[in-house]
Amino acid sequence: MRDIDAGAIEETVARLCVEANIRLNTDIKEALSAARLTETSENGRTVLGMLLENASIAVNEHMPICQDTGMAVVFLEIGQDVRITGGFIGEAIYAGVRDGYKNGYLRNSVVSDPINRVNTNDNTPAIIHYEIVRGDRLKIIVAPKGFGSENMSAVKMLKPSDGIEGVKRFIAETVKLAGANPCPPVIIGAGIGGTMDKAAYLSKKALLRPIGSHHKDAFWAGVEDELLASVNDLGIGPAGLKGNTTALGVMIETFPTHIAGLPAAVNIGCHVTRRAEAVL
């Protein structure tokens, strides 16, 4: 067994909350720069230029890239030979979120109840996904999620007879309905298969993949490329001001499913799609 102190988890989560919100990931920055060269609309190019300038200001002045600094989504891969000492892991993560959002001057965007809405004023609770893996390490990924894009996401229980065309139609339709709301150019995460909850989880996990990465199965890698081309043909464009850059990437994750079902989930990420990780 390898011991990891809860205090170290807290400090790491706090640091990652700030990092994810202030530093635009390199893959997204490169994709925005590349899109600026191929974008056909003038307004679209202006917006892409603003987004790149915004990213520089954010990192240089230590300001959040976007004012919606999200609900903190934390993915943990816990090696089965790890033992947490000095506190409870869930509390350490919440404490890290609290510290990160306070000391990083990030916005508190969480309300205590979905109907009786009172701000918790420390951005907790966080959404935590625990996964037990082999080994004696602890991997922490913090992916704060803004709700402009989260609100435009969707889950649908398709029929097996809907097939791949049904899946493609559902994903493209979801992006079309979202329009300018999720701050295009968007990043599309899709989860296909499993159960309803598994598909939704996979769609969020897909957003952790770097832009340009592909599903390991050639069939699905082809579907990713095809969908990217077809959503860019929708013409929504940067900030919804028209153009051929509606999405920067489409990432699909799949899982075996039931003989009767074809669950499909689409999680839309904005052009910020924050993620920062560390291994303890």
Partner: peptide, 13 residues
């Protein structure tokens, strides 16, 4: 009127 979403450090200026 619409502003550019997610260009918030720039807009703060």
């Amino acid at each position: 009127l619409t502003a550019v979403g997610g260009a918030a450090a720039l807009t703060a200026r």
